[in-house]
Nucleic acid binder design. Structure first.
Lengths: 205, 205, 205, 205
DNA sequence: ACCTAAGCGAGACGGTACGTCAGGTCTTTCG
DNA sequence: CGAAAGACCTGACGTACCGTCTCGCTTAGGT
């Protein structure tokens, strides 16, 4: 977890906090401003100065809580995207995955899809951003997916002699590929096509 | 003003540009400097000022030719990566693709792989960069790949009822995915795994 | 005389001029543009580039004729202000001077007064400008004034034991002073006052 | 002014400005550098970049305090030239003025005279410079002079039916005239001559 | 009737300085 | 005593002109 949580919780375990307490309103205003600007201008054109101005706080107030733009963005954006990408449970693995991929495609086609793209883009210059994206966003979803696939293996719907990580890569990477390179549309038909290609070789049959 | 009008229009109705032509040596020096600095410091820490200084040219000479850093990088980097990614011709489609994917993985693991990553990353804030990456780099290679797959279809090595574009996406996107997200290694084993998953469903059998 | 005249006349004194002669229309267009822009933006904000653009000529065409902005301005402005500042001949020295000073005040209150001010101002950074202003503009008028004063001395209207140069300075410097420092209005009443102060001590009485 | 007002007023219901105070050393270093460079290269060739470099500060630190070169020069030069131009008190008005004019001529012949000239020159393109020169430099000295003349009038040394402003102009403008146009030397003899011309008509006799 | 030298408009050249922006740090005052 | 505010220095931005230098041409006198 980023430093902000630690700093906030540690002194509070003792029942007195020395010095002036951090203004909780500032915290919220900063996150709100950062999130809004992220949607408006993307990760690269996001500036600490701009966030500070919009939130009506000083720059050090931001730097004190988040050591850099990446960590702030993580708190502002990544830490709260969960529920809409959950997996359904239809009883059939391929359908569970298909429906969740539909949801992901839907998200990618929304403004927030562009935010994800700019975060991954910005992360190419800052490994911390990528690391945070992985641990706060991607890995939880991959873990969910992994569970679904394992369930399918247990049900003997799909082969068990494949590397699950690679399967997940094969399924999801085309979506990110098109999100980032924009050489083709992100449609449900494309999802169907990818599932067809990837899963047809995994059928237990 | 009989003279000036004549002078201005007459020669320009002809075929050439008026004024001093742009110095081709400056062009080369700039591209060379940009390419070297790209490898040394990456896309984000690249500065026009630094390139100008290293190339021994003035900043306006750069801005006169490329409107921003992105376009310069495209010319500096993308215009010369071709030959090492050609497809072999072993007679077996799957092997042709496998070997070329090995080459791509090899490239991605070199410093130039990081340059590609930063270009795609930078492109998230500038669609022109992505467009240039597509037309100057990606599409030519996809076209090559497409030909190989079609050849395989003619030879009846693989099924003909699939969308070639989606197949290419399924094959290559995992490599870019790992290049950009760094959640897994880009190894030849990973290539084998992807080919196994994707191609096993495409076998004409 | 500025270099342009020399260049133009010298080869012509020799009976051969090799090469294409300089286009006289360009000369006129440049001077006209320079004069207009001088009125519009003043000496300091005058740019060779702007003059060239307005005149529809190339920069080298200007630099070929005038080595710097100062020399161009001299030709564009100073070489043609003469007639309106001539001295009348009323028979009374004090009146001749008074009327001519009225004319000068009138000129100084026109846009061209500001041009003179910016030329003197710009000349503080370029002694050539001042020198040209002196020889092309100021000295001819001082010479005229000197003749008028000498005539007054001969007529025994004024004392002969004073330094004429100092008298001219005493008479005219207040006008330039107010032109440049703008701490007081340049009116005919002010002229009267100065003449009263300076000439009252010079009366032959 | 969204941020500053809100934030500034809320916690600062107290009396002082929040934030780090402006470094007074930087202030001094900038003024010192500007003054030195003014002596070396004059107003026109003075650059903010050069001042910043010599003072060892960043350009924004200068721009934060002075909106343009003119205002900086005013502070750097004009705000501190007073004492050497004070009037003596010999008991005789003409002598008081003569001695002070000697001092002014002496100043004008020093490097600082050239600085004054370039400031007046530069002021022709920027009325703020002239205004500042008037209020910070010229008017205080004119006021001193005015007092001396009035004293002379009370003592019945000189006539009382003349406009004091015009007298001051008549006395001092020749010095500035020669300072700026350089058509004659600024000597004590010249001062004597001017005083002779101007004051001879003012004698109470 | 050709040379050939100098002119032409156009515009790129290497530079310098501009005034701005954002970065990340430091210092004061206030709660 | 630490949070908040804002000035600090740095460094790069992209622009405007500088004065010079090719370009491909035109012009006209001297061979």
């Amino acid at each position: 977890m980023p430093k902000s949580s630690q700093k906030k919780t540690e002194p509070c375990t003792g029942n007195k906090a020395p010095g002036r307490p951090r203004c909780p309103e500032a915290h919220e205003k900063i996150l709100k401003s950062a999130y809004e600007m992220l949607l408006e201008v993307g990760f690269n054109d996001l500036t600490i100065e701009g966030i500070a101005a919009r939130a009506g706080v000083g720059k050090p107030t931001i730097y004190r809580r988040w050591s850099n733009k990446a960590r702030l963005v993580i708190d502002a954006f990544l830490a709260e995207t969960s529920p809409e990408l959950s997996f359904p449970d239809t009883g059939k693995v391929k359908e569970d995955i298909r429906l969740q991929m539909y949801r992901l495609v839907n998200l990618m086609n929304s403004p927030r899809g562009q935010v994800i793209a700019t975060i991954i883009g910005g992360g190419q210059a800052d490994s911390e951003v990528i690391d945070a994206f992985l641990s706060n966003w991607l890995f939880p979803r991959r873990e969910d997916c992994s569970k679904v696939i394992k369930k399918g293996m247990e049900r003997e719907e799909i082969r068990t002699d494949v590397d699950i990580e690679s399967v997940i890569d094969a399924l999801y990477s085309p979506l990110f590929y098109r999100l980032l390179l924009k050489h083709g549309l992100l449609t449900e038909e494309f999802v169907d096509e990818i599932i067809s290609i990837v899963m047809s070789g995994l059928d237990k049959s």
